[in-house]
Simulated scan of single mutants.
Amino acid sequence: MVVYIVLTVLAILNVVTGVFCNNAIESARADKDIAIMKQMQKHAKQLKSLRGVFKEIDNDQSNLVSLQELKDALKSKKLASFLESMDISTQDIWTLFMVMDSDGSGDVTLEEFVTGCMQLQAGTNCC
């Protein structure tokens, strides 16, 4: 009778342990999915912000930003602070512009601006 009781208690403990382990695994999987969703939302917000910043910089509404427009815009603390918050240095404006101007045309398009900022931010976060 004692052996039966011991085996029954061990079986019940094994089932309870299995339930707890299963819940922990499912919880970890859900946490990973939530982290991925948050990262995707953060990325989408950054893209929207960068598009808004581009429109602020583009004074003549040409959908192109010249070096002079970028210099003028960086004189305001708002844009400089925004780029600094993304870990993009605004100390050397010419180098910043040349990095963004991927096709070497002398003007930066919206796509070049967004891609350049995202690459510069990724470059500072990688190390």
Rank of each mutant, 00 (worst) to 15 (best):
S102P: 12
L13W: 07
S66M: 12
S76N: 15
L83C: 04
G106N: 05
S49Q: 07
G123H: 07
Y4D: 15
A122N: 02
N22F: 13
T115Y: 14
K48V: 11
V99I: 14
L67W: 10
G106W: 05
R51P: 09
L10Y: 10
V65M: 10
L64C: 09
D92V: 10
F113I: 09
S81V: 04
V3Q: 03
W94P: 13
S81P: 02
I34D: 00
D92H: 05
L64S: 10
D107C: 12
V99N: 05
D31W: 01
D103K: 12
V2H: 03
A122P: 07
A24P: 02
Q46L: 08
A11V: 07
V19D: 06
N59F: 13
S49Y: 09
E26Q: 12
M86N: 11
V53T: 06
Y4I: 15
M100W: 07
F20S: 08
V53Q: 09
D87A: 05
I12E: 02
L13V: 10
K77R: 09
T109A: 11
Q61W: 14
M37V: 01
L50S: 07
S105V: 02
F20T: 07
D107F: 15
G116M: 12
T8C: 05
K75R: 15
S66L: 07
T90S: 10
L13E: 03
Q61C: 13
V15R: 08
L64H: 05
V9R: 10
D31S: 08
V99R: 13
A30F: 02
N63Q: 14
N63S: 15
V19L: 10
T124L: 01
V53A: 15
W94H: 14
L67K: 09
I34M: 00
K45C: 14
S76M: 13
Q68L: 13
D101Y: 11
A122I: 01
C126N: 14
F20I: 10
A80G: 12
S62V: 08
K45T: 05
D87Q: 09
K38C: 00
K38F: 00
S66A: 06
L83Y: 03
M37D: 00
V53D: 15
G104W: 02
S76W: 14
N63W: 14
Q41E: 00
V2E: 01
F97I: 01
Q121T: 11
D92W: 02
N14V: 11
I88R: 04
L83W: 01
N14C: 05
F82P: 00
M118W: 07
E84T: 15
N125D: 14
H43Y: 08
Q91I: 13
A44C: 06
Q46Y: 11
R51T: 12
G104S: 01
